Simulated scan of single mutants.
Amino acid sequence: RKTLPEDHSSLASTYNNIGFAYKDTGDYSKALEFYDKALKIDEKTLLPNHPSLATSYNNIGGVYDNMGDYSKALEFYDKALKIEEKTLPPNHPSLAISYNNIGLMYDNMRDYSKALEFHDKALKIYEKTLPPNHPSLATSYNNIGLVYGRMGDYSKALEFYNKALKIQEKTLSPNPPSLAASYNNIGMAYSGMGDYSKALSFLEKTLAIFQKSLPPTHPHIKRALDNIDYVKKKM
């Protein structure tokens, strides 16, 4: 049988595929092992700014992200971004995805000003390149709203949640879970501002969607009931 040399480029793509399969099943240490094998080949055989290297760094960052090791994920997302910034046009969607990933890592690490900086970069690309009702714009607005919410700036959070909601109400069917998440975010922002009756009306919308679309024992339903209970006690 024919065997390939250990650093053959087609082996890298096979290792990446195996890594992806392990990541899909939640076996993150195995996924890292194979992504790392692919990366070692890519680093030996490709130019330092090759797009496949950026993909490898993003793959590894994604696994660390899923494992909750956000500083390690950030390190790899950042390596990918450096290549993308050198090789892609400034409004390329891959750049927006990288800015968004990095923003989420900073958010998880509670570095909110950095999180906003990167989410804002992603948003600027989306606003320039996507139609005004595109779901990625809604996600971007929601991400920014969540950061403001964690900073305790509820009125700013509401501004972005409402932008997301306007898109979702136009583009989604009446009961999808992402609409419920937006209602929940808005409800919790009103709760943070002490406007409990408004909070309650949005949290009840959240619960109604979850009850229609999820099994009764789903943790989202319990969380929605807990949020409603919390707000009612405050009224």
Rank of each mutant, 00 (worst) to 15 (best):
A38Y: 13
E204Y: 02
T171P: 09
D111C: 05
I83E: 06
K232Y: 10
N227I: 10
K23F: 01
F118V: 02
L203S: 06
Y154Q: 02
N108T: 03
K44D: 11
L123Y: 01
M105F: 01
M109K: 07
P135W: 02
I125G: 00
N49K: 12
A199T: 04
I144A: 05
D120E: 12
I41A: 07
L46N: 03
A80K: 02
P93M: 13
K121N: 02
G149Y: 15
A164P: 04
E75W: 03
L130H: 05
A80L: 09
Y70D: 10
K166Y: 03
H8L: 08
L46D: 02
Y57E: 11
S213Q: 02
L11W: 06
N185P: 01
D195P: 00
I60T: 10
K205V: 09
E75P: 02
E85H: 11
N133M: 00
H220D: 15
T87K: 13
M109N: 04
A38G: 11
D7H: 11
N184L: 10
L172Q: 15
E84D: 14
H119P: 02
N108A: 11
S10Y: 09
P174Y: 10
M109F: 03
N185W: 13
L179M: 11
T14E: 06
L172R: 15
E6K: 08
F34R: 00
I228H: 04
S29I: 13
T45F: 01
K40I: 13
L104D: 11
H119I: 00
D107F: 03
T129K: 02
K86H: 04
L47K: 15
L165S: 12
Y230G: 09
H8I: 14
G187R: 00
Y154F: 14
N108D: 15
T206S: 15
F76M: 13
K222P: 00
I228N: 04
K40V: 13
S94R: 14
I125H: 04
N143I: 09
Y183R: 12
A80Y: 05
P216F: 02
K166L: 05
T139A: 11
Q211S: 07
N66D: 15
A208C: 06
Y57Q: 05
N66L: 14
F20R: 01
N17S: 10
K79L: 04
L81F: 05
E33M: 14
A21G: 03
P177I: 03
D36S: 15
K72P: 14
Y161D: 14
E84W: 06
K234H: 15
